[in-house]
Amino acid sequence: MIDQTWAERAAGSKLECEVNGKAVSAEITPSTRLLSVIREDLGLTGTKRSCEIGRCGACMVLVDGKPVNSCLTMAYQCSGKKITTIEGLAGEEMLHPVQQSFLEEGGYQCGYCTPGMIISVAAMLAENPKPSMEQIEEHMSGNLCRCTGYGGILRSIERAIERGGQSDDRG
């Protein structure tokens, strides 16, 4: 027989969290992927859908400041959390220093991986403003680019390190 107190343990179908600094309250089944919530429910299409198994990093977002693959994250795991997508990384007026660095150094070609790349680099530099090449490789190994050969991306990361890649705007 089901214990009556278990009813209180059910994750409800209302997701309440913060996305890019704004409170979000949405009727969503608890196992819905965060990627779907962001793109389809909130219309924030800067977060890209690609491999859908956590390998490519195109759907990377920050949850409480940590990068996660939104294709692997479910709505109930985001309850009460602060989520930052590529649209919310910079302030109103200026690009985030990491975005500016990618722009200046040509850290993209088709651009599909770029939002995820920038999210991961911003998170890495927030944690460690001067990472070694070994640390860069470890932190960026979950972001794949099929166009650039990574040369431009590494240049962009070096440039972001030089200008201090952190921003106070992160969630």
């Binding site: 956590g54 990068p67 996660v68 693959n69 795991q77 991961s120 890495m124 932190h139 190994s141």
Partner: peptide, 8 residues
């Protein structure tokens, strides 16, 4: 895996 997967 990678850092972002290890966060979960």
């Amino acid at each position: 895996a990678g850092w972002s997967v290890r966060n979960l």
